[in-house]
């Protein structure tokens, strides 16, 4: 069996210690977290946590069952496949010499990104999209020299019926 990338999202009680329960489950049972992203929803009592893991399918089944067993996990869904919208945001700080500036801005434009901050020798570029698109953007910006990088990890929602 080959380990698969798996994205899941869960609604949890917005209470202290909940992220620790979720993260502790992964570390305690030897599961892997590739990324984790959490914040409150429109309902102040409920937060949403989205996790990307990589594991064999039976382990993924076990991870989801174990998460559902946590008292604070109210609802859990997989976010794989075309019935879901997934987005990740990255902030990429790159070293840019004045003569490279125009070239870099073209790439940013091509990527649908935005310049979030600019200086004489740097740019902070904001890109978002599917994880693969963000990956491509980082790849294209890498030759200029990445000084710092921050990624949110994916979040997502299941599409509503049309």
């Amino acid at each position: 069996m080959k380990p698969q990338k798996h994205i899941m999202t869960m609604l949890v009680d917005n209470e202290p210690g909940v992220v620790s329960r979720v993260a502790g489950l992964f570390s305690g049972k030897g599961f892997n977290i590739e990324s984790i992203c959490g914040s409150p929803t429109h309902n102040p009592e409920v937060s949403r946590i989205t996790i990307v893991t990589r594991a064999d399918p039976p382990v993924i089944e076990q991870i989801e069952k174990q998460l559902r067993k946590l008292v604070n996990v109210l609802k859990l869904r997989s976010l794989n496949g075309p019935h879901c919208v997934r987005r990740e945001l990255a902030l990429v700080c790159i070293a840019v010499k004045p003569e490279q500036r125009a070239e870099v801005l073209r790439i940013v434009d091509l990527l649908g990104g935005r310049v979030a901050d600019a200086g004489l020798s740097h740019l902070i570029v904001e890109v978002s999209g599917e994880q693969e698109e963000v990956q491509t953007a980082i790849h294209l910006l890498e030759p200029y020299g990445i000084k710092k990088l921050a990624r949110t990890g994916p979040i997502g929602l299941i599409r509503e019926p049309k």
Binding site: G17, R21, G24
Partner: peptide, 14 residues
Amino acid sequence: IVGITRPCTKHNYL
């Protein structure tokens, strides 16, 4: 103690 017993209780509360 809530932190310590998180992995060995069904659930715990402060």
